[in-house]
Amino acid sequence: MTTLPPQTASSQAAKVPAISVDGLHKHFGAHEVLKGIDFQAYDGEVVSILGSSGSGKSTFLRCLNLLEMPSAGRLCIFGEQVGLKKTSGNLAIRDQRQVDRLRTQVAMVFQNFCLWQHMTVLENLMEAPVHVQRRAKREVRDEAEAMLERVGLIERADFYPAQLSGGQQQRAAIARALVMRPKALLFDEPTSALDPELVGEVLRVMRDLAAEGLTMLVVTHEMGFARDVSNRIVFLDQGRIAATGSPQQLFGGGVNDRFDQFVSRFNS
């Protein structure tokens, strides 16, 4: 493993990481997908998680909000350890209410958008704030509309997801995550299901969020985004963090052979 010190290590030393995992393992049956991952993301960091298919990057991200249950390891969200208990197979959730609460703080954007098809865009946005966070409907509606304005979908507020393009659906999904006022956002290949000409509009929204200082963990194949927008790259290879560092360090080459090979496939 090649680890380079983060550029702002001194300022981060005292801070509590936004998301922190120790010794994260995950196996599906006999197949071990994650083989012990130690990782911290700090407040305001934009981390791109790269790796070839099968490297475990999506599984890793999904373990962070427990959509996938780890087999072993420790997970802390903003300093709060997530209660996990041992079972015969994977770990299990100890307190569902704690997990539900933390999930609204670490929201997720999916590859396939996963908007609720039977609700309008506005209803999609209002669902969790009203029914999970129990915030006042009127206030949530105002905030949801402001959020739609921001991602350029206000005139689509009363449309159903099936009536939108992929890019519009993904922007709506990002807005749905943001209305929960999360402290961090997980992106699971947010542009991989999009037609090439629609990728740009989604990346533009993500760039804006990064510029505002939102903590983001992004599993992506968009090398441009990883290089230009993120503060840090995590390169997963065969279930381990093979290299991590700033985009300048890693994309400069010569840090990790597997990473250089991986990147060269995108440039050809």
Binding site: N65, L67, Q96, V99, D100, R101, R103, T104, A107, M108, F110, N112, C114, L115, W116, Q117, E127, A128, H131, V132, Q133, A173, R176, M180
Partner: peptide, 20 residues
């Protein structure tokens, strides 16, 4: 996917069933 999205928004148990 829609169930996962609901879970990732903090829904579980009866709320998840009732709303989604």
């Amino acid at each position: 996917g829609e169930i996962e999205a609901a879970r990732s928004c903090g829904m579980s148990g009866l709320l998840l069933r009732r709303r989604i």
